[in-house]
């Protein structure tokens, strides 16, 4: 007995049809989806779901043991945000973040401009020395100021030696701003540098040729052209400053509670999860707004 002859596999494909084209497009789309799906699923389970849980908690209530419960859900937690304590913290956080951004801009702009005036060889070396603090451990860099600002710290020792008496900057808002500026200055410098470097220096020369003074050529030519960098840098400094937690914990005192620390307190000690959750959400909304501004201002990537 012989096996039945197997018909030869069809070797020629058929002519194209709209159905085939659609099927091919569908297969292509399915392939893309399958490639995306591991990351997609991961982010849904471990990011979108947690975000949803926080959202849900921001509407929760507390029972008499202080535990979050989902009876009588409502906007109670959000209403609490208008209370003087929380409002003060919000304003203080805003103010310190703005101050930090302003100082970074003031120091960072001339610095970035200076970098662009150097020869490319020198510039690369100078940039590496900006990159090192940029990439190195943030916690450690903040901690270093403890050694300097404390009552026994280097600054206090110097003022004491000069006969000015001991000073303690540590645990004041100034120390927090100092730490934030120290931490985030590179984030101002790098985008600023990138945008100033792209400007044709002949434009400045053309301005000088057209009788602009140094200040005028800065105000009317250089600054407007570097605006994308200014906006990008400002947002990159402002946003994390607003939600800062580590810096105020290390360098700030009890009187300088900021938003980040307050939220953490709600979860770890005060155990008021609904208020903590609602504040987290408000903070995120501010960040989203800032991001939209960033993209509107022509920021090409995050």
């Amino acid at each position: 007995m012989t096996l039945a002859a197997v018909p030869p596999e069809e070797t020629t494909a058929g002519a194209a049809t709209p159905e085939f084209e659609r099927a091919a497009a569908r297969a292509e789309s399915r392939r893309g989806f399958l490639i995306a799906v591991p990351a997609y699923l991961y982010l849904i389970v471990f990011f979108a779901v947690p975000l949803g849980i926080v959202f849900a908690y921001s509407f929760a209530n507390r029972n008499r043991f202080g535990e979050a419960v989902f009876t009588n859900i409502g906007f109670d937690a959000y209403r609490r945000l208008a209370e003087p304590i929380v409002r003060d913290i919000l304003f203080r956080s805003l103010w310190l973040a703005l101050l930090t951004t302003g100082i970074c801009l003031l120091i960072g702009y001339p610095f970035s401009y200076y970098l662009t005036t150097r020869s490319s060889k020198v510039r690369n070396i100078l940039l590496v020395f900006v990159m090192i603090p940029f990439w190195s451990n943030f916690l450690v860099r903040n901690y270093a100021w403890r050694v300097i600002l404390g009552k026994d710290g280097v600054i206090s020792r110097i003022t004491d030696f000069l006969g000015l008496g001991e000073v303690e900057i540590l645990f004041t808002p100034s120390a927090v701003v100092l730490g934030l500026v120290y931490g985030f200055l590179p984030f101002m410098i790098l985008p600023l540098y990138a945008s100033i470097e792209r400007i044709e220096m002949s434009l400045i020369e053309a301005g000088r040729d057209l009788y602009a003074s140094g200040w005028q050529s800065f105000r009317r030519i250089l600054f407007p052209l570097s605006k994308p960098g200014v906006i990008a840098g400002s947002i990159l400094v402002f946003v994390p400053s607003l939600g800062a937690y580590v810096t105020p914990e290390i360098l700030g005192g009890a009187k300088t509670t900021l938003l980040g620390s307050y939220i953490v307190t709600q979860f770890l000690t005060a155990r008021n999860w609904p208020v903590g959750a609602s504040l987290s959400f408000v903070l995120m909304a501010v960040m989203l707004l800032a991001t939209i501004v960033y993209f509107r201002a022509g920021g090409r990537n995050l």
Partner: peptide, 11 residues
């Protein structure tokens, strides 16, 4: 990328 550290921590 956009979300604040603290919010992510709470999540």
């Amino acid at each position: 990328i956009i979300i604040p550290d603290v919010t992510m921590a709470v999540m």
